[in-house]
Structures are given as structure tokens and as C-alpha cells.
Design a protein around this nucleic acid. Structure first.
Lengths: 279, 279
DNA sequence: AGCCGGCGATACCCCAGCGGTATCGATGCG
DNA sequence: CGCATCGATACCGCTGGGGTATCGCCGGCT
């Protein structure tokens, strides 16, 4: 199957509408219809159920959507990494979530810069759950992720750091006087629901909590007395003065890992990982 | 980049010869030359250095060869998994090395077959280092691998079993009277070199030992007094009567893991993995 | 019931680009 | 100095991808 065909199918499968998909692809609708039919004929498998009113994925179609996206990412990654290998700028791109892993990141960059064979490291801060995409399609070389919150599926990883978590509350909240709290104490604080982070696909789960996009938003909401949050200990260093943190020993441990795409054979990346694990 | 172009480039990069590559691809040489030049023009990157006598990969070319193979595998996997999702036979394909993990495999298959939601499991035995390929290109759903000998790069894994290793010697060899041996004792046995396994690309490392392809060959050679080998304990159960095994406590522990491609969302596979980890 | 509007499929046409043949130009070899 | 090898170039034919026009189906509105 050609990547063009895969792109076409993914577009239709995402839009579930031939006209819009064709528009997105910058082609007319009839060639798109033909291309999809040809894919189905060659695979010998129906991918879409069409009525004149609605298009839906078959089970096989859902598989091809998932696998096709991964394959397209792989092709894109091949191109991008090839270009980067040639441009002579053998810099590394390290991606992490905005507002996370503050101290660790600084230590890593300092230690790596001191290595004899180090190259420039570009740090990219991105929103939640974009790291995987960047790593998969070749725009980034490595990522700092937080287990168990981030997925490392498909990547090689090394653990760097483990830490407990704290509950973050508005300063002055009654519970802030306690030396530590249990998960049961903070599971359902009246008026302080947990925020809802966007899922990888951009949508939000249903629930009572406010929708948040980044740490700053979250802190703002907590300060306003509208939310609470369980965060890794290391966030205390960058907490605003109007927030308070109380340790929660029985919260799941957060492990910071460095992740990179498999098949990487870059010496610079290997050196960065070596530096990271020996911190 | 289209998969056709990737296939063309991979062929040339592997053959390092336009004529042979064209023959392998079933096309004439001139279109192939043109296609490669077009790829280089579009990427803005030289991939091959050509003289009229020799073709060699540039550094960027080597990157594209590696990444391109992975991308082609991903595309092929997408097609294969889509076809398999549709044919209604939701069977699983489990791949493992011939002659390895005997007892564990039987237990796993029995336990899984007893699950209420189990489906047919096809067991594929293959030579060393083909498992990764099968898993990557969608012909297999899961593999049983041995750490540290096999690579799990790019796959998700769960550990199933850890065991020590034994040295396998011809029956009657003086050392077989010992209750156990150290690595130092068996590192360099006179006349009994370690065999050389094929590498993933099919070639063999240089060295004194005989080249072997599978366990039967190896046992034959040991019985003939031409080789010795360090193997996992569990191999004792299937050892021929003319061979003897002595524990080597300081040999690296062999961990059997079950590995599967990331992005898998198959319920049947999830169930198999759950069964495996709860053995 | 009848009309309309939206949507995917079909019919038909055009041309970009892929692949083929013939040939050139460079280079290592006897 | 021919000769053989191998990649690049020139040129040509045709397949197939993309465009426009239109059809057929169906749900909804009045």
C-alpha cells in the first residue's frame, strides 16, 4: 500500500465524510472515493460502511486507522531523521511537559553539556500527550515522561528518578495544617474536585472538575478555591505563594523516565541517555 | 515519501548496485536511478555517493535505510493486521525460538485455552532473531524472548520467568563431575569453543567456534566434542543422553519475557498477556 | 406525496509521471 | 588503447490518478 493511499484512508476515517476529507486533502471527492474502494478491493476487506447519509468504520477499518497512523508517523520520521542527519546540525531535541521536571532537566542539561562529546540540545516544551507524537514522527529525539501518567508504549526508556506526591491546596485550607494526608482524605474534597486533563485525542473526560490545559491554569484554579490536585513532590519548588502542598505518602509514586524511539543509533542520543542514567 | 520510493531506496542501499537492485525490484535500471535522484532532490540530501565503479551510503543514507526499513515494516504490518482483523479468524500468532521455553510454552497455552474468552493460538517456531521481524511486520501478535540475548527494542514486554544457566558439555567430560562451575572455568575450554549464532542480518561473527543455526545442530556438535554452550537451565529437560549439564551460578540470569507490538488493542492479545503474567 | 438538498458512486476526459529502450560518459582493467 | 561495467540521460508510450459533470439514493421538510 502506498503512503498516499494510507493518508487518504486516514483522512476519511477521521472525518467520516468523503467530501470533507477530500477538501482536507486538497483533491476532489470522486478520486478519493475511488482510491478508498481500490484499497478495499486490494485488501479484500470492507473498511467503511457507507449509506448516503453516514459513513462508519468497520472493525478492520478501525485497525487500519490505528496502524496506518503509526505507519505514516514512521514514514514521516524516516524523512525527518534523514534530513536532520544530513544538515550537519546534529543537535538533539528533548521534549518535556511545560512546568514539569524542573530541577532534573537543569541537572541533565548541565551534566550533558559538560560531556566531551556533547552537542546542542534543543528543549521543547509541549502540552500534555504531545510528546509521543513528536517522538514517533521524528521531530524529537528523546522525552522526559512521568509514569504512570504518560504512556511509554513503543519506546525504549530508562528510569531517572522516583518521587512521592503531594496534594496541592489553596493556602489556608484547613487540611494544610496536617503534616501528611492519605488518599482517602483528599479523594473527594468538597468544592475542590480534581481537574480534568485533555486526553491524547484532545477531548475531555466527563466529570465534575474543571478542564485544564497546563500547570499555570491548574494553579490558578486551585488558588481560586475551585480545584485541588495531586502532583509530584518536585512541583513544590515552583509553587505560587498562595498555594500549599501536603505530602500524600500512599499516592502512587511518580517515576520520571527518559524515553526515546527504538532503532535510534545516534551517538549523541546514546551519550545523553548515558548522562541521564548516571545522574 | 511514497512506500514505492522507500522500497526502491532500501533495495539500492542493500545491494549498493543499481543494476542488481533494479533486477530485484523487477524494473529496469534507468527508472530506478531517476527515482533515487528524485528522492535526494526532494529531501535536499545526498543519500548515496556514486562513482561509476562503486555506490556507497552517506550518513544520511544509512539513517534512511534503517528508518525506511522500520517504516516499510509498519506499513506492511498495517495491511496484514487489517486483513487479519477482517477474516473473522481472530486467532493469535505466538512466535518463539525452536527448542526454547518448552515447559513455559505448554503451561501458557494450557492456561490460556482454559480462559473463557480464549481464541485459537498458532505457535510459530522460527530461527534466531526472526521474531522481531515477524512481530514488527504484523505476521505475529506476540513473542517469547530471552533476555539478555534477544532484543526487545520497540516492543512492550512483561517478564514471565527468570532462571540461571548451565554449561552443556559432552557426557564424560572431566568437568561434568563438578557440582557447579564458574564462568571463568568454562570461558575457554580447550577444544570446546562457543558456537557462533547468526546475527540478525544472517552473517556470522568471526571466531573459532563452529557456526550453528539451531539447538539440534548445537547439541550434535557438543556431543561430537566440538563445542560447548551456556544455556538456560530449562534446556536440561530436553537434553540428549550423551550430553551433560553443570550449573554456572555466575552466568547472567536469563529472563523469559512475552513481547508484543505497541498500539495493539486486541482483546485476545490482552487476555493472553494477562494469562502469561499470572502463571 | 412530492420536492429538495446532501452525499457517495459512476462516467468520461486529460495529462503527469512511471517504466521501458537506446545510448552516452566515466572509469577500472588487461 | 580498446573493452567491459555501471550509472546517467534522452526520448517515448501508456497507465492510472485527478478533474468535471452527473447520477442514484435517501432523509427531511412542507
Amino acid at each position: 500500500m502506498e503512503t498516499r493511499e494510507l493518508r487518504y484512508f486516514v483522512a476519511v476515517a477521521e472525518e467520516l465524510h468523503f467530501g470533507r476529507a477530500a477538501q482536507r486533502l486538497g483533491i476532489a471527492q470522486p478520486p478519493l472515493s475511488r482510491a478508498i474502494r481500490q484499497i478495499e478491493r486490494r485488501l479484500g476487506v470492507p473498511l467503511l460502511t457507507r449509506s448516503s447519509r453516514a459513513v462508519a468504520l468497520t472493525e478492520a477499518g478501525a485497525v487500519l486507522l490505528r496502524e496506518g497512523r503509526a505507519a505514516l508517523d514512521a514514514v514521516e520520521a524516516a524523512e525527518r531523521r534523514t534530513r536532520r542527519a544530513a544538515t550537519g546540525r546534529p543537535g538533539l531535541v528533548l521534549v518535556t511537559k511545560a512546568g514539569a521536571v524542573g530541577e532534573l532537566l537543569v541537572k541533565l542539561l548541565d551534566a550533558y553539556a559538560a560531556e566531551p562529546d556533547s552537542v546542542a540540545v534543543e528543549v521543547v516544551l509541549c502540552g500534555i500527550a504531545e510528546q509521543g507524537r513528536l517522538l514517533r514522527d521524528g521531530r524529537a529525539d528523546a522525552a522526559l515522561l512521568h509514569l504512570p501518567y504518560d504512556s511509554t508504549t513503543g519506546f525504549d526508556t530508562e528510569e531517572l528518578h522516583a518521587e512521592g506526591q503531594v496534594v496541592v491546596l489553596p493556602a489556608g485550607h484547613p487540611l494544610t495544617s496536617r503534616a501528611e494526608l492519605r488518599m482517602a482524605d483528599v479523594a473527594d474534597l468538597p468544592g475542590l474536585p480534581r481537574p480534568r486533563w485533555p486526553r491524547p485525542d484532545g477531548s475531555h473526560a466527563d466529570g465534575p472538575g474543571p478542564q485544564v490545559r497546563d500547570l499555570a491554569q491548574l494553579c490558578q484554579l486551585i488558588a481560586l478555591g475551585r480545584a485541588s490536585a495531586i502532583l509530584p513532590e518536585s512541583c513544590r519548588a515552583q509553587l505560587r505563594h498562595d498555594l500549599a502542598a501536603v505530602p500524600v505518602p500512599d499516592a502512587p509514586t511518580v517515576t520520571t523516565v527518559i524515553a526515546w524511539p527504538p532503532h535510534s543509533r545516534s551517538l549523541a542520543l546514546a551519550s545523553l541517555i548515558r548522562t541521564a542514567t548516571s545522574l
